[in-house]
Computed example of a mutant assay.
Amino acid sequence: MTDAARRSPVIFDGHNDLILRLINGDITAERVRDGCADGHIDLPRAKHGGLAGGFFAIFVPSPAESAFSMEEFSKPAYDLPLPPPVDHATARVITEQGFAAARALEEAGVIRICTDVDALEAAMQGPSMAAVLHIEGAEAIGPDIAELEGFHARGLRSLGPVWSRPTIFGEGVPFRFPSGPDIGPGLTEAGKRLVRECNRLKIMIDLSHLNAKGFDDVARLSDAPLVATHSNALAVCEHARNLSDRQLSMIAETDGMVGINLATGFLRPDGQMRADTGLDDLLRHLDHLLQMLGEDRVGFGSDFDGAIVPEVIGDCSGLPNLRQALRQRGYNEALMQKLCHGNWMRVLRKTWEG
């Protein structure tokens, strides 16, 4: 197979945390453009792997003293305490840094920020990556939702109301294994206002990390397809961050979709966050999601630069190994096109233009 064939179909990805690396000062936009030896994403490796774009998350990290050791994920069962909420003022400052980092990436020629599907499809042809700006955890938005319209004007088109720690809008699921996602109460009144305002502005609502009662509230309130940008199947890995069959059925009913998360702790049936993980577990999730959702409602949401992914992929330059595994599983080229990018374009067009 030629190199061009190994890079095709190009992949549009549901989630990455590259912007956080710029916020933290780990890397510069110029190094992402020119290539670097660490992390999961830079422009040369993206071109090599056929990563044409994706959702670029702006995320406010928890204080360093709240961080947990990755050794916790090697235990047969774990339940990591959630970090405390982040105050609004701090979140605003860091979110502004995130928008600035995204603009720096665009100015360096790494990404092209897009706000409609036609622009995404054009940008996916290169030379930059097509980017949807996403906020993961809405702490930078106050209870009156006043900031949301300004963020929308600056290119925001996708938002997750929570990460894992609680917010004024609702509660996320913890790093808990084994466990389902039915943990904690549903959306607050502010959370319900946030859903309605996202619907008005045509901002996609991301259900990844939201707990079960919050998920149900969004499903009841929203007039848009239900989407989880980087989540997996609870039936394959009993992790609190994964989606139950009931939730998957609700997503299918709204013609939404799920992007498979490559984080190994959410792929493996034993919940272990280990790089020495093959692709068989990922393929089991994919098979299950296709069975529950149909072939038009599944894609990928790698969590690159935010998780430990299977070493057979390693970083975005290893995505040809994922395509090879899909072909060996018997997926035909039409389905490959849908999984790699077509389904994301479909659901974004329906969300933003519907």
Score class of each variant (00 low, 15 high):
P83C: 13
A46L: 11
A123C: 04
A123F: 04
T90E: 14
S62W: 06
A46W: 02
R33D: 05
A131K: 07
I41Y: 07
P61C: 13
H88F: 14
R92F: 00
V110L: 09
I58W: 03
I58R: 03
R112N: 10
D79T: 02
A37R: 11
A101C: 11
R103S: 06
A122V: 04
S62T: 07
F59A: 02
A52N: 05
F59M: 06
Q97A: 14
M70P: 00
P85R: 15
G25N: 06
G39Q: 11
V86M: 11
I113N: 04
A146S: 15
H134M: 14
I135V: 15
A89Q: 13
E30T: 01
T115R: 15
K75G: 00
F59Q: 05
G126D: 06
G109N: 06
L133D: 06
A123K: 06
S62G: 03
M129E: 05
V132L: 15
A123S: 13
A138D: 06
I94C: 08
V110Q: 08
E71H: 09
Q125H: 10
P84R: 13
S128W: 07
G98K: 08
M124A: 11
G109S: 08
P127R: 10
L82Y: 06
G49D: 06
G126M: 04
F99T: 01
D42M: 05
I27H: 01
F55K: 03
G53Q: 10
A104I: 01
G35F: 02
S66N: 12
P76E: 01
I41D: 09
G54F: 06
D116W: 02
S62H: 12
G35H: 03
A102V: 10
S74G: 09
E107R: 14
D26R: 09
D87C: 12
M124Y: 01
I58C: 06
Q125S: 13
G53M: 05
S74D: 08
V93S: 12
R33S: 00
L82G: 04
E136W: 09
I27W: 02
A57L: 03
D87L: 08
D144F: 04
V132D: 09
G53V: 06
T28L: 03
